[in-house]
């Protein structure tokens, strides 16, 4: 049994859907019972809230505080004011890191989004096979570190099977992970390989929410698949695509594990992405204050990009219905 695209679309909570939404428990309950519900809600919320405070809010606030200190984790933090930020602005390695990270994100997200969209549309329009949908997801089931190591071995300049094949067909060997120019695109594509299926599946879920009768109506009007993609699929998928983009961009900026196992930031800092530099400063050089300052900078950059993306893509609104 497959989830056929012709079956009634299961709607995602995009808001503004046709028909009245079912009433919530709170709406059905009388005013007198509201207080009891509040307590119950508090109980249900408590675990999540505890998690939020312990694992997110407190570490964030403490991280911001630490960014104003000199701290090696083992002796008490010492307040140094803006020193870490001054150092950051004057640190060429930090700016280099940021540039490398942006380069990675552009390649990673650019290729991944286009590929995922193509796969999602193909899954939606051409096939109804659950097996194929499963296969698309398989690279995502592998751990990042394992994927990184396997690709490292495949792409090794001297011994990797990938380069052996290149050499066998008479092409020069390519130092995929060992050359300044190649390393970042290679890492970006390794991660595209791993994440594209997952991203495609998210977009596919978004596509399922587009009513099939729109396509039928368009077909009756004689629209081609290409035209339907641009006139129906893309506009109606926009809110989902926007959310997926925001999520993947944030994830992409935080690239770490693939770099750690394949290049360790090298050669000559060519893949020293921001998270790797932060990690090295903190856990290698015990400069937790400076590492915190760079983390705060990353937080600011990510927040700005997210707000900008949200605005530009009107992620909160849908054209459906």
């Amino acid at each position: 049994m497959t989830i056929a695209s012709s079956s009634p679309p299961s709607r995602l909570p995009l808001g503004g859907a046709e028909g009245a939404p079912p009433k919530t428990i709170a709406q059905r309950a009388g005013a007198g019972e509201n207080q009891g519900d509040g307590r119950l809600a508090a109980v249900f919320l408590a675990p999540a809230l505890l998690g939020f405070v312990v694992f997110l809010l407190w570490p964030t606030l403490r991280g911001i505080y630490l960014s104003f200190t000199r701290f090696n984790l083992l002796t008490p933090a010492e307040w140094v004011g803006l020193d870490n930020y001054v150092r950051m602005v004057n640190d060429p390695i930090f700016w280099d890191s940021l540039t490398v990270t942006v380069e990675y994100v552009l390649i990673n997200i650019g290729v991944q989004t286009v590929a995922a969209l193509a796969i999602a549309v193909l899954l939606q329009r051409l096939t109804q096979s659950a097996l194929l949908r499963g296969i698309v997801l398989t690279p995502y089931l592998m751990s990042n570190v394992v994927a990184g190591l396997v690709w490292l071995w495949i792409l090794d300049t001297q011994l990797g099977i990938g380069n052996e094949i290149l050499a066998a067909v008479g092409v020069d060997r390519i130092p995929f992970l060992a050359d300044e120019t190649w390393a970042i695109p290679t890492i970006a594509l390794i991660n595209v390989w791993r994440h594209v299926g997952y991203t495609a599946l998210l977009l596919f879920a978004g596509l399922q929410a587009i009513p099939n009768d729109m396509y039928e109506a368009a077909r009756v009007d004689g629209a081609s698949e290409w035209r339907m993609f641009w006139r129906i699929t893309m506009p109606l998928l926009r809110p989902v695509l926007a959310v997926v983009l925001i999520m993947t961009v944030i994830g992409s900026f935080q690239v770490f594990d693939t770099v750690a196992v394949t290049t360790a930031g090298g050669p000559a800092n060519a893949t020293n992405v921001l998270q790797y530099y932060i990690y090295g400063s903190a856990f290698g050089r015990f400069q937790f204050g400076y590492a915190s300052a760079m983390s705060v900078a990353l937080l600011v950059v990510l927040s700005a990009i997210t707000i900008l993306q949200y605005r530009l893509t009107r992620a909160g609104r849908t054209d459906l219905g």
């Binding site: 490292l152 090794d156 001297q158 011994l159 130092p175 060992a178 360790a264 050669p267």
Partner: peptide
């Protein structure tokens, strides 16, 4: 001696190059 691009701390250290006859 091989160029730096032939070296990798994980997959291709000196001992690997010797073992592989390179």
């Amino acid at each position: 001696m091989p160029p730096l691009s032939d070296y990798n701390i994980q997959s291709n250290q000196a001992n690997t190059q010797v073992a592989a006859g390179k």
